[in-house]
Design a protein around this nucleic acid. Structure first.
Length: 380
RNA sequence: GUGGGUGUAGCUCAGUUUGGUUAGAGCGCCAGGUUGUGGCCCUGGAGGCCGUGGGUUCAAGUCCCAUUACCCACC
């Protein structure tokens, strides 16, 4: 079977000491150097920032959500504008989640069957039936660059029997989505590896997804409350069963540590609400660790959030001013904090990539942890 | 000056009628949490001579007297 499309993903260099690699994903809307982080823009907007902010922060691809956009504003509205890119004014690549996670997170208002998922709209209570076929068609209509197949994300912890049953459903849906997908549109479709945290089911999930020959793969069901060690094991187990020449996306991850550990294990793409949501709540990431800008110790602090950060926020504003804005719920704070956190995440993946290209990922990781250890002792 | 009302946490106030464990709430403040997004939300914490003085009582934020500050109305 030929590649989709030719050279969809090219590995530029692999680290000599671990599975980490630097790559390039080629999409209809541009190249994506990997590893990289995707800002979450569920409703076709990364909250509090615009496309220019994203570009300046280093974003090369953003994420949106099929489920939410389908309900509002509806596919027909977006198609009227020639697709999601034009509608939201973002010219770069877009990946959409299928709505599979909403099956999990909005569990109070859904019914799952083998045929698909019956959602009750949180907006008006109306019912919508999502099938794996419909989800692929919807993402095709949105015109996105990378589509995700419909999956079921089982809660943690779940019994082995529950995981096996859920996995069969996800595999059924994956095969049907795969059959619906038209590779000639130039839009990629990724298969999602579930399987919980039982080594055998996670490995089996990866094998079965690999057999469907998707252009790329994602690991789902991570960061649901499991210990870090279990999460890392699940990544390694799945990785071993997946063809390494295809891109790997860790869905919903994560903390800066998750990114470093994920890259170390061969992951190329990440998305997480942490940098954007935490920004809006005053939790800001720096090279020396995380800080709560509301803490009284920042009241008269004239320093930037992170002296080594080149972002717009750090170039102009003091911790004291940001604390003041946050304390008073000034809308400007949301934007400045989001710009900073996204810049930090994107700079982290960018420097990881550069380190891999130099064959020095291990040193990069060591540096990463050393700086945070230093930061913790400084703050205490 | 006369009559009435109000003084309880930083703020806004419950609790006083019918006295009874360690005086509460919301907001604010302080500090945690947040993993395929609602800016929400969740969890802790600090903070009170209950205006002041006296009295009644086994027991007073609560009842009585005085006093003081502020508010309103009328002179």
């Amino acid at each position: 079977m030929p590649d989709f499309p030719p050279n969809f993903f090219a590995i530029e260099k692999s680290d000599p000491l671990c599975p980490a690699r630097a790559g390039l994903i080629k999409t209809p809307h541009g190249l994506i150097p990997t590893p990289t982080f995707m800002a979450v823009g569920t409703r076709g907007s990364v909250k509090a920032v615009g496309p220019d902010d994203l570009t300046r922060a280093g974003s090369r691809i953003v994420l949106a959500n099929t489920y939410h956009l389908y309900l509002r504003p509806g596919l027909e509205v977006i198609q009227l504008f020639g697709g999601l890119h034009k509608f939201m004014g973002w010219p770069g690549p877009i990946l959409t989640d299928s709505g599979g996670y909403q099956v999990f997170s909005l569990s109070a208002i859904r019914e799952i069957s083998e045929a698909g998922v019956m959602f009750r709209s949180p907006y008006d209570g109306s019912k919508t039936f999502f099938t794996p076929e419909l989800v692929v068609e919807a993402q095709t209509a949105l015109g996105v660059d990378i589509m995700m197949s419909l999956d079921e994300c089982p809660p943690y912890p779940s019994s082995l029997a529950a995981i096996e049953k859920s996995l069969d459903l996800t595999m059924n849906w994956a095969a049907r989505g795969r059959a619906t997908w038209n590779p000639r549109q130039g839009q990629a479709l990724f298969g999602i590896v579930q399987g919980g945290f039982y080594p055998a089911t996670r490995a089996q999930a990866a094998q079965r997804i690999a057999a469907l020959n998707f252009p790329g793969h994602a690991l789902g069901g991570l960061a649901l409350g499991e210990p870090l060690a279990e999460r890392l094991d699940a990544i390694e187990i799945a990785r071993a069963e997946l063809p390494p020449e295809k891109p790997l996306y860790l869905m919903g991850l994560g903390t800066p540590e998750d990114l470093v550990e994920g890259i170390k294990r061969g992951a190329d793409l990440f998305d997480c609400v942490l940098p954007t949501r935490n920004a809006r709540n005053g939790q800001l990431f720096t090279r020396r660790g995380r800080l709560n800008i509301l803490n009284a110790r920042h009241r008269t602090d004239s320093r930037p959030l992170d002296p080594d950060c080149q972002c717009q926020t750090c170039q102009t504003f003091s911790r004291a001013y940001l604390r003041h804005l946050c304390q008073n719920r000034e809308p400007l704070f949301l934007r400045l904090a989001t710009i900073h956190n996204l810049s930090y995440y994107l700079e982290l993946t960018k420097t990881a990539r550069e380190a891999i290209l130099r064959g020095a990922f291990a040193e990069f990781a060591k540096n990463f942890y050393a700086l945070r250890a230093a930061g913790e002792s400084e703050d205490s």
